[in-house]
Amino acid sequence: MNRLISILYWISLGTVLCFITLPLIVVVAASLSPTSAVTLQPWEWTGRWYADLWSSRWLDPFLASVKIATVVAAISGVLGLFAAYAVVYERIPGSDALMSCLLSPLSVPQIVKGVAIVLFLSMIGLQGFLGTPALIAAHVVLALPFVTRMVATSLANFDANLDRAAQILGAGKLQRIRLVVLPMIKPGVLSGVTFAFIISFNNIPLSVFLVRPGDSTLPITVINYLEYSLDPVLAAVNVASMAFILTVIFLFEKIGGFSAQLHGGSK
């Protein structure tokens, strides 16, 4: 019986892993395709599509996306931290209602949000904001609930006795936040920030309404290119951005995940 369960376990694990990774493998293979059609020919490959990535056609939107995602991660990280702090830690009056309010953007489809933001901007005469500023604002709206939620969870798991221990040892509120609360919830904050970065970097449904010609993000540039041609350079773009995202996750994991538990941030 146990054997059967264990066999089933391995089969299902394998299936899920294949399901997740096969499309990625196909993309990687396609990006190495020697012909300009997207084909799979594992015995013949070339790296020339990757060389194309250094052209400003791809490099500019990539840098724009990185810039936007960085700013979005920073802003939503700070705002999410403040929001979660007020709601979970200080338990300000009406904090439950406030939390639902903070998470409410999750329940609106992104397309609807995009249309709403465009309408709003033109209504108040701020069409000029389209492009980077609007993208940042919209992505923050999108990412904030995730960040708030993650920080709130780690704050809720924070042992209030640690705060009391610091207090009775003479630490004022700011010192307690800096020396005890922040180091303890750092992994939660950092994973929230990582999430915000990825959400912004990969976003299509919102960005599609807000980009301006010459001021576009990488995913939108890919979509636009796809309308006219389908060639392996797209696969190369995708592989490259996948590698970039994995690097970002890895870096944040290094800073905040395991090592935070070991050394903390009090030095």
Partner: peptide, 18 residues
């Protein structure tokens, strides 16, 4: 509490894990 100059030992110790 931070200005009472009192020490407190908690039941679950409450040591700073970091």
């Amino acid at each position: 509490p931070e200005r009472r100059n009192i020490g407190l030992v908690f039941q679950n110790y409450a040591l700073f894990p970091h």
